[in-house]
Design a protein around this nucleic acid. Structure first.
Lengths: 193, 193
DNA sequence: CTGTAATTTCAGAAATATCTGAAAATCCAG
DNA sequence: CTGGATTTTCAGATATTTCTGAAATTACAG
């Protein structure tokens, strides 16, 4: 690998991480190289930096494009394509989550819904469906939270994340302020925390 | 596979999903079988249900135990071990995230920190470090948010997630209420959302 | 068009990961 | 202890994934 030591360590680590998350090691390395590059790179730049075959790079780039993770730029008078990652790292993470959701979470939800529609033929199936229902509801809760938060501008998102669980105090405050005399209070009145 | 059709579909789907997330297909299937089982199962029950070898089950269970995802129960007068998943699916997800963080996110953060300590030997290394810094800060923001939210009781967590981005309105309200006369307002005054 | 540079495709090679059966180790009742 | 039941280990077999080089395709300047 012909990159400076710091870059090499980064690239190797992300190749490793990629492979633990179901992304082929080389594809992870290609993305890492593009992520830290100073300028857009063409396929042969990547071949040179990673020391892998041209065809492997071609396939890796195609894979990354199918995940919407790359931008390309043409240089006039140069027939080659140059690739780079989005400048905004938040945009990268949003895309990654969106794609993963589209490919894995959404299909899982539909499988679960389909299985929950069927009438159980036995006690064990009935129980299995109960568990699937719990899983379905949890996934739905998480994805609808995500769909909602996904819409926020990055600045707002950071504000929200920075607050962490202190947000709960703000919530309590709101509840207290808006508790109508005789109105219904939260199902979970202050436990001290 | 000797399980009712609904269960089989579930198990196959989760084997598939597991393998897309860097978990071996069989390990995913073993967990799926345990997750929907009516009672704790011993290794041979799993062999029977999945139609795989005894040694494969043994290795799969060991793997799942190393992730803290299993509970075991002994039945008196029976030498075999019986395995089951936690009843509380939120507990399962919390464990999964914790372990994944411990194994992948934490090591990544230390690699990034170590690389950011080094003095750059070239402009390209300097730029690479800038990108690594962005990544480091984002991962840190996300993990500290998670560490914080992780502490909430499940009921509170659900309340928070259900609120989704409506939480931002509550935040704005808080800001408005506490805006001291002449005090500093939010850096991002209401854009109408 | 034509010729050359660039990219993609894909069959088979190489590398990894997974799975199995047999043997070894462990466990515990008697 | 002993012996059978159970679990674990691990070398090699099998299956899967990844990678490569060669050939095919595409793109476009002249």
């Amino acid at each position: 690998m012909s990159v400076p030591p710091v870059c090499e360590a980064f690239v190797l680590h992300f190749g490793e991480m990629g492979s633990r998350w179901g992304i082929n090691r080389t594809v992870g390395q290609i993305y890492a190289v593009l992520f830290i590059a100073e300028r857009p790179l063409c396929a042969d730049d990547i071949v040179e930096r990673l020391g892998i075959s041209r065809s492997n790079v071609s396939m890796g780039l195609k894979e990354l494009q199918s995940w919407n993770l790359l931008r390309q730029r043409s240089i006039s008078g140069d027939r080659r394509e140059f690739f780079h990652t989005p400048d905004d790292i938040y945009a990268i993470v949003r895309t990654l989550v969106d794609e993963r959701k589209k490919r894995e979470i959404d299909p899982t939800l539909s499988v679960l819904r389909e299985l929950l529609m069927r009438s159980p033929e036995s006690e064990s199936e009935r129980h299995a469906q109960e568990r699937m229902r719990e899983m379905h509801d949890l996934i739905e809760l998480l994805t609808s939270w995500y769909a909602d938060v996904q819409k926020l501008e990055t600045e707002r998102l950071i504000q929200l994340l920075s607050l962490g669980s202190r947000i709960v105090k703000v919530l309590d405050m709101k509840d207290r302020l808006f508790a109508l005399p005789g109105g219904k209070r939260s199902a979970n009145p202050d436990k001290g925390n």
